[in-house]
């Protein structure tokens, strides 16, 4: 049996960490409690479960100096309805709309999606492209780390003991005119992705790619980036021919595996199709 504590502020969290050695934190519990129920947790059952969902400071979204700070325990539902997110980072709600189901989005948090560090985490490709910076705190103080350095491998995030994720910081000034996310799963709702892609694109008035960034889910141990693909697309239109030519470069950038949901080869095909489907924006510079 574990005790379950719900601290109201960070000070109380640090006190709990001081007193008990075997603690495990959670937010919405949509990853952790599923794992606990099937006892797939690395350690045995912890003595103390610390639920962070009542900590006000981790639950708000605010703007300071052109940056938006999202508390780690903000739920996906909350992000989906928040004007700061909708207006400045449309790629994020586009991804979150496809995450789980309404009750999973009411419970699940952005911080939980990051700390779970799944290659299929649907918020992650968007956060990589938005250059999300993570605020990690412990009793000793805070540090900031880009999301790409924080997530080390499947299920493995760089959190030291006594540390928790406090907030996700995003820069407001991005001038990408197309915010895109697409995921392919086995069905529409409640599907873990077989492959997914987030894209931020800026087209010139003639429909030529001025800037483009791509991030890929479920096709590598962590979110995959594909800078060679981006480079080759700059200065060209998003035509099927051009996108098709970039396929071999995409193949080099990803390293999918076989698992219960799909074979590696199939994931490669799906990823290539996701790339080619960007041709829908050919000549249309819209979100």
């Amino acid at each position: 049996m574990s005790d379950v504590l719900l601290p109201k502020n960070l000070h109380e969290v640090w006190k709990i960490f001081d007193k008990s050695s075997e603690t495990l934190v959670y937010a919405g519990g949509t990853d952790l409690l599923v794992k606990l129920a099937s006892s797939r947790v690395p350690h045995s059952t912890p003595n103390v479960l610390v639920c962070l969902e009542n900590i006000e400071e981790l639950r708000n979204i605010r703007e300071t100096d052109g940056r938006v700070r999202i508390g780690a325990c903000v739920t996906h539902s909350r992000l989906l309805s928040h004007p700061l997110i909708r207006d400045n980072f449309p790629v994020l709600p586009k991804a979150l709309r496809l995450l789980g189901s309404p009750p999973v989005r009411n419970m699940g948090t952005l911080g939980g999606n990051i700390c779970t560090a799944s290659p299929a985490g649907d918020a992650l490709p968007a956060l990589y492209l938005l250059d999300a910076e993570l605020e990690i705190s412990s009793q000793k103080g805070s540090r900031f780390i880009p999301i790409g350095q924080f997530i080390k491998g499947p299920g493995y995030a760089e959190l030291q003991s006594g540390e928790i994720l406090i907030a996700i910081w995003l820069d407001k000034n991005n001038d990408y005119t197309i915010h895109h996310f697409e995921k392919v799963g086995q069905r529409n709702a409640l599907a873990i992705s077989i492959a997914s892609m987030a894209a931020l694109i800026k087209l010139s008035s003639e429909g030529i790619v001025e800037k483009i960034r791509l991030a890929w889910g479920s096709v590598a141990p962590t979110i995959a980036l594909s800078s060679e693909v981006e480079t080759v697309l700059i200065g060209k239109p998003l035509s099927q021919v051009v996108l098709n030519e970039a396929r071999p470069l995409l193949n080099q950038a990803i390293s999918p595996i076989d698992d219960i949901r799909a074979k590696a080869e199939y994931r490669r095909t799906v990823a290539a199709n996701l790339l080619i489907r960007l041709s829908r924006y050919n000549g249309h510079d819209k979100v």
């Binding site: 479960l49 309404p102 009750p103």
Partner: peptide
Amino acid sequence: TILVDNESRLSCLMLAAQLE
């Protein structure tokens, strides 16, 4: 599914202490 503070949540993925 139950409603917690008027929002749908899954009672199989919540622990009793969270209801306080």
